[in-house]
Design a protein around this nucleic acid. Structure first.
Length: 609
RNA sequence: GCGUCCGUAGCUCAGCAGGAUAGAGCAUCGGAUUUCUAAUCCGACGGUCGCAGGUUCGAGUCCUGCCGGACGCGCCA
């Protein structure tokens, strides 16, 4: 626990006993909060709930406690003041003590292990699987899918920071009607497209073939849905034949499926590389068919599933979940069938203690049905499955719709973001030097820096918001450096690195964990120290609530505090040697923590920009 | 029709298991640079927290109802 809170509780506890309270109220620790204005104090305890036990009005209690505690405070190393403010008891911490507890710990790395202590003893860390991304092959990967990757990957990193062992899993949708439609169009109708689209992109751009398939799929859907009913039924029968040919797992269509599937996977790989997303294991929908079918049979035997209107499913009305279909009338499996199988495989083959699904909110009912079915099938781990639902990504002009052609596919997104950064920022480095070395930047550095800033902008924009809400994607808003953006975070980091480099150059000084931190007395330094101290608490809460946006908010707060301190507290021109050393240590620690926080969001900042 | 989620400043969003004058960013207006990157910092302007009840010493936060929006509700994934 926070040592400051611990000491406050200790002091309040003994003071209360002195005041004649028979027993301490439950959850006193949770009552400790932060005052709205730092000028009031660093920690506050409201005295409302004590009123009943002591039978006195809250303001009287707080001033009484302040008097008693104030006397005992002289011996405290951590706290420097206590004052009653109406019904509140406000504590001020000894800034040097707080700095002493955080700055050296960050610099030597021990700060980052703190959240990992949760496991204790000899037991191995809790193993949890985070399934995310789940792209469909033969479909285009667009901005909407980026939110999933940003969220899932951040969650993986946050849970790891908090001491869990995490298996990052992908689940590729490589079977289903959409693929049959794509291949049906490929075989019979692609000549109807403009000539340049008749054949897939060549060897020089293999990663573009995935999007080309997606375009065929869109064209197929348009052709089918745009036809007269008779024609449409005919097309549907043709598509159905393709689907059955695919499920037979042999023949010409199957070979085509293998080839085109590989194209899509290659395209996805390129996207994950660019974003820096990690996967430890990849599941394929095409592997889940057999086990899913078997589970349906078992469920039928057990009476969990029943035949209904020619298909198989279960009425979950008594649980408020409607009807859940697990096998189609023609005997083929559904997404649902395969999800039953996948859930089982995850626990049985990976020995996980928890299974998290990062999937859009529109599938909430589906997952509740899946989890309930598993429970009814006697699968005890059903309660350890959790669906992290998130809202849609929309454009400023409204919902994305592939029919209106206003989705933003990955390749277009990357191009536009890169162009924006290059013309607005990077061009300066190409034409003239910046900062300490006046040389031009190499093409490689410009390219890599551009990529990092682009990824920071997109990832930060995607994770900074509460997952439950819709997100409005606006490229320019997400990249402008003024304000709450990934660019701003990167800029703060590069400024810190720049200070460190220059102090090293000018004075040969390295950040020293033993620096005299008591020299840090400026209010902006105080605020920064407080943010450093607070970070692990936020990280813990983010992990427990599966809420990456809390980390994002904390990182932004940290950058704001740093920027304020940077503007008011120079290092090289500090008044004294002690102050310089202290600020150097403080900024170095800030940079180190910022880097860690950015990495939790999947952002790798550039060293300069 | 039923269910789930959302509704906070002109715009985009925070608000931590109810607590002090509701916070940021953008936009608008004004200021700061011979000094570690101004991709920055400071200030001003801007809110009956969708509406109405209820619980509570205290409600943006919990409960109920209504209004508005999004999504879902058997052979897509």
């Amino acid at each position: 626990m926070d040592p400051f809170v611990e000491e406050i509780l200790e002091l309040v506890g003994t003071a209360l006993r002195q005041a004649g309270a028979a027993e301490l109220p439950e959850g006193l620790a949770r009552m400790i909060e932060r005052p709205p204005d730092p000028a009031m104090g660093d920690y506050a305890m409201p005295c409302f709930t004590l009123a009943k036990a002591l039978r006195k009005p809250p303001p009287a209690i707080s001033s009484e406690l302040a008097a008693v505690i104030g006397e005992r405070l002289t011996g405290s190393r951590l706290l420097s003041g206590v004052v009653a403010a109406g019904p509140y008891l406000n504590f001020r911490v000894n800034t040097a003590a707080m700095a002493g507890l955080t700055v050296p710990a960050i610099l030597d790395g021990s700060y980052f292990g703190r959240n990992r202590e949760r496991q204790g003893d000899d037991t191995t860390a809790e193993k949890v699987m985070v399934e995310y991304s789940q792209p469909n092959t033969h479909k285009a990967f667009h901005v909407g899918h980026m939110r999933n990757v940003a969220l899932g990957d951040a969650l993986v990193r946050i849970l790891e920071y908090d001491g869990r062992q995490v298996v990052a899993a992908n689940y590729i949708g490589d079977v289903g009607t959409h693929i049959a439609r794509c291949l049906w169009y490929y075989e019979n109708h692609r000549e109807e497209l403009p000539p340049q689209y008749h054949e897939p992109p060549g060897e020089e751009h293999p990663e573009e073939r995935g999007e080309w398939l997606g375009m065929l799929y869109t064209a197929a859907v348009q052709k089918i849905t745009g036809s007269e009913e008779q024609v449409r039924l005919h097309y549907d029968r043709e598509v159905s034949r393709v689907l059955q040919a695919l499920e037979s797992r042999e023949g010409e269509v199957f070979a085509l499926w293998e080839q085109t599937r590989a194209w899509s996977l290659e395209a996805f790989g390129e996207i994950y590389r660019w974003l820096g997303a990690r996967f430890d294991h990849v599941f394929y929908e095409s592997d889940m068919d057999r086990l899913g079918r078997q589970m349906v049979d078992d469920g039928l035997a057990a009476g969990v599933f029943v035949h209904s209107q020619g298909a198989v499913g279960t009425d979950m009305e008594e649980h408020g979940l409607g009807f859940f279909l697990v096998l189609k009338g023609d005997g083929t499996t559904l997404y649902a069938t395969k999800d039953l199988a996948l859930a089982r495989i995850k626990f049985e083959q990976f020995g996980i203690a928890r299974s998290i699904y990062v999937v859009g909110a529109e599938q909430k009912l589906h997952f509740r049905q899946v989890f309930k079915s598993l429970e009814l099938l006697g699968f005890s781990q059903a309660t350890l499955c959790h669906h992290l639902a998130y809202g849609l990504v929309v454009l400023p002009e409204g919902k994305m719709s592939s029919r209106q052609g206003n989705t933003i596919p990955f390749s277009q997104l990357r191009r536009e973001v890169n162009d924006y950064i290059e013309t607005n920022y990077m061009s300066a480095h190409r034409e003239a030097g910046i900062g300490e070395d006046d040389g031009l930047w190499s093409a490689e550095e410009i390219q890599e820096t551009t990529r990092r800033i682009a990824v920071a902008g997109i990832r930060y924009g995607m994770v900074k918001q509460d997952p439950a809400r819709q997100i409005v994607f606006n490229l320019e808003d997400w990249l402008v450096s003024e304000g709450d953006t990934g660019t701003y975070l990167c800029y703060a980091y590069t400024r810190i690195q720049s200070v460190l480099r220059q102090v090293q150059q000018a004075r040969g000084a390295e950040p020293d964990p033993a620096a005299p931190l008591e020299a840090l007395t400026h209010e902006n330094e105080r605020a920064l120290i407080s943010d450093l101290h607070d970070f692990n608490r936020v990280a813990r809460r983010a992990a427990e609530n599966l809420a990456p946006h809390l980390v994002a908010n904390a990182v932004f707060q940290l950058c704001k505090s740093f920027s304020r301190a940077y503007a008011t507290c120079p290092v090289l021109r500090a008044e004294t040697e002690e102050l310089m050393a202290a600020r150097l240590a403080l900024f170095a620690a800030t940079g180190r923590l910022l880097l860690e926080g950015l990495r939790m969001l999947g952002i790798e900042p550039p060293e300069r920009m």
